[in-house]
Design a protein around this nucleic acid. Structure first.
Length: 201
DNA sequence: CTTTGGATCGTCT
DNA sequence: GACGATCCAAAGG
């Protein structure tokens, strides 16, 4: 009873779409996690966005159509994953900040030997990519395409398993940025133990 | 539990 | 040449 998320809900502004992605399911090659924390980034109007200074080879996927996966490399060692929103050219995106592990936990553990608990598998944007096996080759994947027949890059999908968005959504400032820090564009499932952090002071 | 500093390299200036 | 949408181990309370 899991179907791809409707592309229609992703054509909205990323700030509107972000909370709608809570409780959706991110899957990759037998591993799955429920999205419990996200952040919206807003292209040319958002100084914290990778797209703020225009189109580059790295951020090109952000400028494409909604429903595609933007994966970037940072701090010399980490991958992070975004869902592209809006319409072509807007460069709106939602960063997936935390998932609660659902399926394929042994594989996640193998991919993340540093995890001390199941909660540690996906409670951070780079942690969840490591656990789910998402990396550079997955950049540009259509998250809403029919399920792939084989494993390999490009197998990441965004599914709706029928779980509605949470009744209680936490909202606060974004984490880890040096500019546009006042914008309350981070959303999480209130009371969820697998969130990366609580509200900022 | 919290704080602190190091790792490490692609990207853009 | 500087820095980043981060994580982890170590150390202290």
């Amino acid at each position: 009873m899991a179907a791809p998320v409707a592309r229609q809900i992703l054509t909205a502004d990323s700030v509107a779409a972000a909370p709608l992605l809570l409780n959706k399911v991110l899957v990759n090659r037998g591993r799955a996690g429920r999205i419990v924390e996200v952040e919206a980034y807003r292209g040319a109007t958002d100084a914290a966005s990778h797209a703020y200074r225009g189109l580059t080879p790295r951020n090109a996927v952000m400028f494409g159509p909604p429903g595609f996966l933007y994966v970037y490399f940072t701090y010399g060692m980490h991958w992070c994953a975004n869902v592209v929103c809006g319409t072509e050219g807007e460069a709106l995106a939602v960063l997936i900040r935390a998932v609660r592990p659902l399926r394929g936990l042994p594989a996640m553990r193998r991919a993340r030997p540093a995890a001390r608990s199941d909660r540690d598998l996906g409670n951070g944007p780079a942690k969840l990519c490591q656990a789910l096996g998402i990396a550079g080759p997955d950049n540009g994947t259509d998250l809403l395409a029919p399920a792939p027949r084989r494993s390999g890059p490009g197998a990441v999908r965004l599914l709706d398993d029928g779980t509605p968005p949470p009744e209680l959504v936490g909202q606060g400032r974004r984490i880890g940025i040096r500019v546009a820090t006042e914008e309350p564009w981070r959303f999480w499932v209130e009371g969820e133990p697998c969130v990366s952090r609580g509200p900022l002071p």
